[in-house]
């Protein structure tokens, strides 16, 4: 088995207690961190801070401070730089960020030794934070940006989306999603649970109908179309043997796989043999995909190590 990422969870430490062992682990980590902080400047991020100012002159924003401007805004931008850059200062927030990221990375990686309190903590943080993040995101992209903007443009502009063009107007079509949303939320009511099924039915039905076309076109017709090639391949010097064989293999492979996915007949006799060939084709495909994906995973792992050793521990 080619799974490197997760090993057998040691059932002895099921993470239920926070015993002496973990206290020692924390102790070692703290000592290590202090050492790393001083010896390696681990996780210290230096930034160069600049102030950017814009002024509004005659309905246009120009860079820099202009006297008599109708409005003037300024903010600071920080760029991470090497510690020896002139004017660079240690950024507390970024340093904390790197440390947090490193600690959380280690916590997650501690799963290699089985379930443990660190993993649990990291898991809870990731799940909680991301759920909250998605909640906020959906609110702004879904409810505000799509629904409110089209239903109550003026009010929305006033409190949420100042950049909304004046031309935006009430769009009656958006009442439909509003009603559907309302029906969906009906679930919370103890009565009439069936009401929530209608929007779901709508979503699933509409999706199915919509996807039918696109799937049939892209996964069915286009696939067939792109597989149709002459089995007699000619090149500059006439008939080319190997490319022709290749084309034949592709055609036969596709046909065999197609037979494997026949459900309404038993895979016996000739059908069984063909399906078997299809299986081999699929296996070869899977093998290739497997290798490709493993490579991708290794890259991800490298990225994480890169973060730990370079950005955090300053070793590379």
């Amino acid at each position: 088995m080619a799974s490197a990422s997760v090993t057998n969870a040691n059932s002895s430490n099921d993470g239920s207690g926070f015993g002496l062992g973990w206290a020692i682990v924390i102790g070692i980590f703290v000592v290590f961190s202090i050492g790393a902080w001083f010896a390696l400047d681990a996780g210290k991020v230096y930034t160069l801070t600049e102030t950017v100012t814009y002024s509004q002159v005659d309905d246009a924003w120009v860079s820099g401070a202009v006297d008599g401007a109708a409005q003037q805004v300024s903010w600071e931008t920080s760029t991470a730089v090497n510690a020896d850059t002139p004017g660079a200062a240690l950024s507390a927030s970024r340093t904390i960020g790197v440390w947090l990221a490193a600690i959380l990375t280690l916590c997650i990686m501690s799963f290699l030794a089985g379930d443990n309190p660190f993993y649990k903590a990291a898991e809870a943080i990731v799940v909680g934070a991301s759920a909250a993040y998605w909640m906020v995101l959906s609110f702004w992209t879904g409810i505000v940006d799509k629904l409110l903007v089209n239903l109550i443009p003026d009010i929305t502009r006033a409190w949420a989306v100042p950049g909304l063009p004046e031309s935006a107007s009430f769009d009656v079509i958006y009442l439909i999603p509003l009603v559907l949303s309302g029906m969906l939320i009906w679930r919370l009511s103890p009565k009439g649970g069936w009401i929530a099924r209608w929007p779901l039915a709508f979503v699933i039905g509409a999706t199915a109908g919509f996807r039918l076309l696109s799937h049939l076109e892209s996964d069915f017709l286009l696939q067939i179309k792109s597989t149709i090639t002459p089995l007699y391949v000619t090149g500059a010097d006439g008939f080319q043997f190997w490319p022709s064989v290749g084309a034949l293999v592709i055609l036969l492979g596709v046909l065999c796989c197609l037979v494997y996915f026949f459900f309404s007949m038993e895979h016996k006799g000739a059908v069984g043999k063909t399906a078997r060939m299809g299986i081999y084709v699929l296996m070869v495909t899977f093998g290739a995909a497997f290798g490709l994906t493993v490579m991708g995973r290794i890259t991800l792992l490298t990225e994480r190590f890169d973060f730990l050793f370079r950005e955090w521990l300053n070793l590379l």
Binding site: D14, Y119, E123, V126, S130, S138
Partner: peptide, 20 residues
């Protein structure tokens, strides 16, 4: 129940549930 939309947050949550 709903965990989170975030791919790896969800994964971590399910995985934790599985080992426990």
């Amino acid at each position: 129940y709903y965990l989170t939309d975030e791919q790896f947050g969800y994964t971590a949550g399910v995985q934790g549930k599985m080992v426990r």
